[in-house]
Amino acid sequence: MTLVKFNNGQKNYGVNPFFNDVFDTILNDTFLGDKLVSRVPAVNIAETENEFQIELAAPGLKKEDFKINLDKNVLSVSTEKKAENVEEGKKFSKREYNYTSFVRSFTLPETVDHSKIDAEYANGILKLIVAKREEAKFQTREIAVK
């Protein structure tokens, strides 16, 4: 019978522990992680008595850049912006394009009123207001003790 050693989540430092630690810090660096996360806008979602409020941080765009779709219970917000820097009268050996796009999708609960969804874009924040159905709103009442 042959015995095989498994790592079981522990680091195997081998010959030089510093060598492996350098690779761990490079691969798990927050700078690289932040770059990957920044491709989609940050979102705040709040719930009030009458509605849900979804706010997306998307600076540098115009309200015409957004496309908002509702497919059954999935609300999708997307944008596609293509800008190019062109100077007339020069021969370019290199031209730079700026292309920005993202898609964020939200699964809406059964309690929302699909006919009452509003969107507003101001100061780099896209704010979506999703109203609740009347029967889904919080009902408050006092209960008498008998």
Rank of each mutant, 00 (worst) to 15 (best):
D113V: 02
L75K: 04
K72D: 04
E88S: 14
E110Y: 00
T107F: 00
L126Q: 00
R95C: 02
V37L: 09
V77L: 13
L32G: 12
F52W: 08
N12G: 00
K90C: 04
N50C: 01
E134C: 04
P17N: 10
K62H: 15
A136C: 06
N73I: 08
H114D: 12
A131N: 04
L56H: 11
E80S: 14
R141I: 03
A144G: 06
F106V: 01
Y97C: 06
N98A: 11
K63Y: 15
P17C: 06
K94W: 06
G9M: 11
E51Y: 02
A57R: 12
S38Y: 13
L61K: 04
A58M: 07
V43P: 05
A42P: 00
M1A: 12
D24M: 01
L36K: 10
K67A: 06
L27P: 02
V77E: 03
V40R: 13
G14P: 04
N20F: 11
I68Q: 08
K72S: 04
E135Y: 08
T107W: 02
K90R: 14
K82T: 12
S93N: 13
K94D: 09
I45D: 04
A46R: 03
T25W: 00
K90T: 13
N85D: 10
V4F: 08
K116V: 03
V40T: 15
V37D: 08
K11Q: 10
G9E: 07
R141K: 14
D24G: 02
